[in-house]
Design a binder for these strands. Sequence first.
DNA 1: AATTAATATTGCAATATTACGATAAAGATA
DNA 2: TATCTTTATCGTAATATTGCAATATTAATT
Lengths: 107, 107
Amino acid sequence: MGASKTHIFSPTHNELAHAAKVLAHPARVAILEYISKQDACICNDLVDVIGLAQPTISQHLNEIKKIGLLKGTFEGKNLCYCINQERWEELQHSFHQFFSNINRNCC
Amino acid sequence: MGASKTHIFSPTHNELAHAAKVLAHPARVAILEYISKQDACICNDLVDVIGLAQPTISQHLNEIKKIGLLKGTFEGKNLCYCINQERWEELQHSFHQFFSNINRNCC
DNA sequence: AATTAATATTGCAATATTACGATAAAGATA
DNA sequence: TATCTTTATCGTAATATTGCAATATTAATT
């Protein structure tokens, strides 16, 4: 009746789906890209850059955080978000695996 | 009020998000993997293999089809789904680009 | 033409997501 | 301490997704 039956799927499939879900909103893609493009860590011009309200940005950041893609540290006044490189490469690998493991000699 | 504001994002971000959405459900990940692993094209044991009702599988297949990842052809009695290799590689490339374009020298 | 098997569509209920105004919390500054 | 700035949380409304029973469609077989 409307809830995903995650229990019937393998951990691998669930994990990839879970990661994909984070990338499944353009705001989160844009946020990740923006954060990564900053050499310095001073963030949250995000509200202006992305064009969504501050609570909405905060929620999206939280989704990204929940999957471990952000490291947050305080530096002076502002909270600073950075890409968690280790986790990033983990997900990169998962997607790479998924796309590579496909058998194409069909039809 | 609940609807994604896709118009405020770039085509690139929207397209990646759109593709990610298709992978954002374990059933669809499992379906794609299963189809690709069949050397021959006779599909739709899917209902048994995946463990969801036939209409649900049909809907998931439709999502996958909508983004162009499936080629469907008739062969004898059964409809046959195969991975659309060209589109597959397009998406593979998009994800690869996204994951590579991230600047990691921060924090 | 009638039957069978496979797939698609419809309709509906449960749940999840998206968005934002209002408000709270935390820390810096005056 | 009062104020300002930044970020988080709450509450709520709109929309989207997930899942399946019932039903329809399609094509092959009898």
